[in-house]
Each structure stands twice: as C-alpha cells, then as structure tokens.
Amino acid sequence: MHELEIAQEIVAIVNDHAAGARVTRVLIEVGKLAAVLPESLRFCFEVCVEGTSIEGARLDILESPGLARCRGCGAEVVLDQPAGLCACGGADLELLSGRQLQLKEIEVI
C-alpha cells in the first residue's frame, strides 16, 4: 500500500538529481526489515515513471539481510522479519541492520 508513495518519493529524488537527463537505471537498497515489498515497489515504480524522463529505466533492487544481536547470549541472528528467535531461545533481539530504504545511485545518458 505505502509502496506507491515510496515509489513517488523515489521518482521525485531521482528527478531532482537527473536534472532533465534521461535516466537508464535506478539502484535502491531495500532491507529485509524495511516493511517494503520489492515486487510491489517494482510495480508502483513502473506506474510512477510513465511519461517522465525515467520511463524505461531499469530498477535494480539490492535486498540486504536483516541482522540482530541476542541480548541474552550476544549471538548474531539473521532475520527476515523484525522479530524472531535466537538459537539460545531468546526473543529479546536488538536489530542491527535491515531497515534500509535507500536510493543509492542512478545512471543517466
């Protein structure tokens, strides 16, 4: 649902930086814990770029893993949801990374 707004935000930032040049590629990083569905974002992006200088650009999505530290035993835990269990059984996890929603680079011609 919010992917549409996120796609609009991406298009606005890309337009700002491209300054009228034709955009051929957009690279964004989406963390596993960002609450953004890559497939849904891709769909919304296609809709948003229609008729703009970004139309036809390739959207590359770099999916980064979710990572947490168990406050019980200190181990690192890989997550694909913002909650989970450590191998020690602990559920008290400190999220370390995976919430990125970052526009990294664009390619223009």
């Binding site: 996120i6 935000e9 040049a21 970052q102 526009l103 680079e105 664009i106 223009v108």
Partner: peptide, 26 residues
C-alpha cells in the same frame, strides 16, 4: 541550489554517467 545550477547547464550530468545519491527514500 544544485537544481538551479543544472538549469544554467553548467554541471549537467555527462552521458552514461553514474550518479551516486545515497539518500534515505523517506
């Protein structure tokens, strides 16, 4: 500011350039 500069055509991105942005979408 950078937008205005582009409109004056000075540092318009060159052909086939990769522009690093690194901005949080939100």
């Amino acid at each position: 500011a950078e937008h205005l500069r582009h409109e004056h055509g000075q540092d318009r991105p060159r052909v086939g350039t990769t522009i690093s942005i690194e901005t949080a979408v939100l």
